[in-house]
Every structure is written in C-alpha cells, then in structure tokens.
Amino acid sequence: MKINQLSVFLENKPGQLSEPCRALAKAGINILTLSLADTQQFGIMRLIIRDWAKAKAVLEEAGSVVKITEVVAIEVEDHPGGLADILEAIEHGGFNIEYMYAFTFGREDKAVLVFRFDDPDPVIKMLQDNGISVINGVDLYEQGQ
C-alpha cells in the first residue's frame, strides 16, 4: 500500500532542477508527478515514478544523491471538503504529517494526495478502517498511464 518516492537533493541555484529531469528524459523515464520544497540554500525534489529503481540508478549515475522514501497515496473526490475529511481523520488518529502534496491526472473528478508519515503502516490501517481509499502503487501508475 506504500509507494516509493524518490527524493533528490538540489542546490538552490539556476539550472539545478533541469539536470536530473533531463537525465530521466534521456533514459526514457516518465515522471508521474514531482514536488519541490525549498529553503534559501537548498531544495529537495520529490518524484513519483513508475520504475523508481531504474530512475534511482539513472539519477545516481548523473551524480545526484537520491533517497527512497515510502509515502502514502490517497485518492480523493475532487470537490470541496474532500481533503478536509481526510485530514480530519488523520488528525483524530493523532498522526503527524511530515509533508504532503497533491496532483490530479487524466480524469477530472479525482485527485491524488501524497502523504509522508513518520510511520505509515498504522495510518494506512486507520485510513482503510475509515473507508478511505489508499491506492497501491500499481493502481496509481495504471491511472497515470
């Protein structure tokens, strides 16, 4: 139920973002989504990629430091309040969100939320108990195709 996300360390200067992306493109690897977190000095790029193992090898070959992190992806109805319900459930469970980001794809009525928790397993269980659909990796990639 967990998804492997790639994190890449970037210095905060022009051109830093394009290099790893170009490396992936050259290797014919498609990026499902990416999110950026930045500070004054450096940033961390987080990528969701189907063939994460190959992507990791490509990026490392290109000289990047890459880390694999397990994240939780949740499908949500793309309407007002959709996110709030999920956040409420997480809050009730007393779980701390390290960070999150969202993206939509193909279909217009659904969005995917990507969450990072310290310890994802109990959260996944809680979400499933509450009838919230946690998507497994394959589903996500299928939908993304």
Partner: peptide, 18 residues
C-alpha cells in the same frame, strides 16, 4: 557535499544537519 549517508528526504532534518 551531501552524501547518501546523511541525506534525508525531510527539509527539517537537512536544515538541522546544516
């Protein structure tokens, strides 16, 4: 230089390291 040993996915931890 950030090595794989010290790299973390979390900004907070990286800021901490710095």
């Amino acid at each position: 230089e950030v090595s794989a040993d010290v790299f973390s996915d979390e900004i907070r931890l990286m800021e901490d390291l710095r």
